[in-house]
Design a binder for these strands. Structure first.
Length: 823
DNA sequence: GAACCCAAACTTTTT
DNA sequence: GTTTGGGTTC
């Protein structure tokens, strides 16, 4: 990242008034100061609310920006305005976003506004990247050196596993993964080991939760490393314990801007509040209806109580929507109105209803059919000269993507998956990165450990243990220990020889670090270590792909000045750039779609259990449901012109077919803005299946808006059918919403109690669950009927999972709820 | 010490 | 259906 020159102001000296130097901005700035603000060119085309949000520069401001109301425009223009009026230098503005994508976009757009000189804004970035920047400057205040490394989740888990084992605990009973999540949760709240609630501390590892957390933090310190959470928590600690440092930043940051404020967690909130105490010029932009990261510790509360936290705050609502048709807005508005505790906004548009299609709801027999039909629809649009770039498929869960990918591959339809399996999380990339990390940072034990024996060098468990013991006894990093150890006679000849080679290699590479082009060095490392050869000799199907990825990795290093710079980038930005030139349909999750817009949006998988997601219901109760609804709202409001929702009656989950019922969200769409599509093709006689009695064209006929409970015909039918299909043991409705199910049963709430939770009722609906421990009504040899597979005989029984030999479909595993005994 | 085979767990979302 | 991890065997 940038060096110490970062604070050189964009024009002139920090202490003097801006002078017209280079670029269009400075000139415009001078001009702007002498005129009324309205005439500033960058303010042109803003509506009155937007203008107010841009110009209300002093004091706290909360901008409630609904979907598609020009939020990013307001933010960027506001920054341009601050600069142009000479209120602050670029280096005195702190602008935080959540994603790298958002930061990038903001940089670009400010660049356009002020004439390309965005390098002058060193403090525009994600919470995490700004955290790193702060921490590198003051690392010694929390016991780190400024060249600390940043661990990703994988490193973190491996480290925790070691610690758990070192405590003499069974790492199966106490999975490191789970503990990593707990730590994450604590750090999201800003809790150090001393701050965590007693209950939390006791919930893990026989009550050793706190000790383990502390051990973990200590270990990080000796490794000179920190995890993602620390990037927020350490700066907070520094600010709290060193008022002089905090004061420095108070003087520094004259204006603070926060994007997506509804997604801030407690730690981020604390961090912001500390900084904002200086100038009080804090502007938060957000939309409570788009808060979808509660599961990650985001507190919608932060936005709901902004006025309390920042007295005298000005609240500005942006409600004029520039994106979607009235039908789409109407459908989204009606859906989201089912949530309680909103700040309340009413979006409106000038676009007339009549020219546009309603939101269309489509039914399909199963997920294959769904993918096929969506594919057809896309091809039709394509024939009518719509570009694939203007279409997107937004799914709830990533496993849904595959079916579309498969289908599009056969169709030869271009698609791009956004936010799929991350490039930098692939095995070969991580291995290669581990080599680079050790070269740049010889004390990086985790990286060293990862690759000492990759490719295989005959350094097995015994040798590694020996190395470990040696290092721990002397309190030195593993690489140092290795280079010392091979000088002794302690090791057996063969591992000793291997280890000597490794040590020599690393020494050589390190010595080349500063005088060899880094891409060249990288290639050399992979070559000489035998890593490339390892994959070349690998005959498995994915080996060629991995080699390609390694090439791609080297190529992407070219964009950076040094290997260190590259490593820093990767640890913060996990995604690789996408090819924008290709005309392709986008496939992504609803979460990663936030902030984007498309001409046509497809929303598949609107079924109970998937959307709203079962787990959100189980673990989040009512608030979980509301978050799912916000997710649906986000999905709908991505669409500019057309929005197609799909639901299917059969979906394969965990490899077995389950019949599903339509999402309750469908019943929350108003009939004046949403319609059920006539089935264009022969979708297997949807109405004749007996499952739903058909959620056909009549579904909205008697729908009562704002009915509060799920009394619409489709819903009721679904419930009745569900009850009949699963006669046995689904609990009945118990009156009212169950708040926060899943919490309270244990101290932690992290995945605990999941197996004990069986029949969840949320606002009266009944949801099927897979239950492994109940005796089945079926016995081997029973003749059964299944809606998708037809007739067959039960071959074996595992709880409520049956293996059935179907007459036509062959052997399948299905849940017993979905077959009927025929004789 | 390494390769192979089988079982279990897993699938919400991400910096 | 897939992947990962563990256990067994050579």
């Amino acid at each position: 990242m940038a060096g110490p020159d970062e604070d050189i102001p964009f024009f002139g000296e920090d202490s003097s008034a801006p002078s017209p130097a280079s670029g269009g901005l400075a000139a415009r700035a001078m001009a702007a100061r002498n005129k009324t603000s309205v005439s500033a060119p960058y303010l042109e085309g803003l509506n009155p609310e937007q203008t107010r949000a841009v110009e209300t520069i002093d004091g706290p401001v909360l901008v409630l920006a609904g979907a598609g109301t020009g939020k990013t425009r307001v933010l960027t223009t506001r920054i341009a305005h601050i600069l142009a009026t000479g209120k602050a230098y670029p280096s005195q503005i702190l602008a935080v976003t959540f994603t790298n994508k958002a930061a990038r976009e903001m940089k670009e757009r400010i660049g356009v506004l002020v004439g390309g000189a965005v390098e002058g804004m060193p403090w525009l970035g994600t919470f995490h990247s700004i955290g790193v920047r702060l921490l590198r400057r003051h690392a010694e205040l929390v016991g780190l050196r400024s060249d600390f490394t940043i661990l990703d989740t994988d490193d973190q888990i491996r480290l925790l596993k070691q610690l758990i084992q070192a405590e003499g605990l069974d790492d199966k009973r106490w999975p490191a993964r789970q503990f990593a999540m707990m730590i994450d949760g604590w750090k999201n709240k800003g809790f150090g080991p001393a701050d965590i609630p007693e209950g939390d501390a006791r919930a893990f590892a026989n009550g050793k939760g706190r000790e383990l957390y502390e051990a973990y933090q200590n270990r990080l310190k000796t490794l000179n490393a920190c995890d993602f959470g620390d990037l927020l928590c350490h700066p907070i600690r520094i600010f709290k314990n060193h008022p002089d440092v905090l004061k420095e930043y108070h003087g520094k940051f004259r204006y603070v801007l926060v994007d997506e404020y509804q997604d801030t967690n407690t730690a981020q909130y604390l961090w912001l509040r500390l900084i904002a105490q200086g100038s009080h010029n804090v502007c938060c932009v957000g939309d409570d209806d788009q808060s979808i990261y509660g599961w990650r510790g985001a507190e919608v509360d932060n936005i709901l109580r902004f006025e309390k936290d920042f007295p005298g705050a000005v609240v500005i609502r942006l409600e004029r929507n520039y994106r979607s048709t009235a039908h789409i807005l109407g459908a989204a508005a009606h859906l989201i109105s089912h949530n309680e505790g909103r700040l309340g906004k009413t979006l409106f548009t000038d676009l007339a209803d009549d020219d546009h299609d309603k939101v269309m709801v489509h039914a399909a027999w199963d997920s294959e059919e769904e993918a096929r039909a969506v594919g057809e629809e896309i091809e039709q649009l394509q024939r009518r000269d719509h570009r694939l770039n203007d279409m997107a498929i937004l799914v709830r869960a990533s496993f849904q993507m595959r079916e579309f990918e498969d289908r599009f591959v056969t169709l030869g339809l271009n698609y791009r998956v956004i936010g799929g399996p991350r490039f930098y999380e692939r095995l070969e990339i991580r291995d290669a990165m581990a080599y680079f990390r050790v070269v740049c940072q010889p004390a990086d034990d985790l990286a060293f450990e990862r690759i000492v024996n990759t490719p295989k060098r005959g350094l097995g468990e015994a040798a590694i243990r020996q190395l470990h013991d040696y290092a721990r006894a002397r309190d030195i990093p593993l690489l140092k220990a290795a280079s010392d150890l091979v000088m002794t006679e302690e090791m057996k000849p063969r591992p000793r020889k291997s280890l000597t080679d490794v040590v020599e290699n690393f020494h050589r590479w390190s010595s080349l670090l500063d005088n060899t082009p880094h891409t060249e060095l990288a290639e050399q490392i992979l070559e000489e270590s035998g890593y490339t050869a390892m994959w070349q000799n690998d005959r498995s199907a994915d080996a060629p792909g991995r080699l390609d990825n390694l090439k791609e990795l080297i190529r992407s290093m070219e964009d950076f000045e040094s290997m260190r710079g590259f490593l820093e980038h990767v640890s913060l930005v996990m995604d690789a750039e996408q090819n924008e030139d290709l005309d392709a349909v986008s496939i992504m999750t609803l979460h990663s779609a936030k902030g984007l817009e498309f001409e046509t949006v497809f929303l598949p998988g609107w079924e109970e259990g998937l959307f709203p997601h079962q787990r959100a219901l189980d673990e989040g109760g009512r608030s979980g449901l509301e978050e799912e609804r916000r997710l649906a709202y986000v999905g709908l409001t991505r669409a500019k012109m057309n929005c197609h929702i799909w639901f299917v009656s059969n979906r394969r989950i965990h490899g077995l077919w389950q019949s599903t019922i339509p999402s309750r969200f469908l019943d929350e769409l108003p009939s004046e803005h949403a319609d059920v599509a006539e089935s264009e093709t022969s979708y297997g006689g949807y109405g004749a299946t007996g499952v739903g009695g058909g959620y056909g064209a009549s579904r909205f006929d008697e729908a009562e808006p704002f009915s509060g409970s799920y009394q619409t015909p489709g819903w009721r039918r679904a419930q009745i059918n569900r009850n009949e299909a699963t006669r046995q043991n689904w609990g009945s409705r118990s009156g009212h919403a169950v708040e926060r199910i899943g919490y309270g049963e244990t101290d932690s709430g992290y995945g605990a109690g999941r197996t004990s939770v069986k029949n969840r009722t949320i606002e009266g609906e009944l949801v099927a669950r897979s239950v492994a421990d109940e005796p089945s009504d079926f016995s081997i040899g029973d003749r059964v009927f299944h809606l998708k597979f037809g007739n067959g005989n039960v071959a074996s029984i595992d709880g409520n999972k049956l293996t059935i030999d179907f007459d036509k479909a062959g052997q399948k595993r299905v849940l017993d709820n979905y077959v009927e005994k025929t004789k």
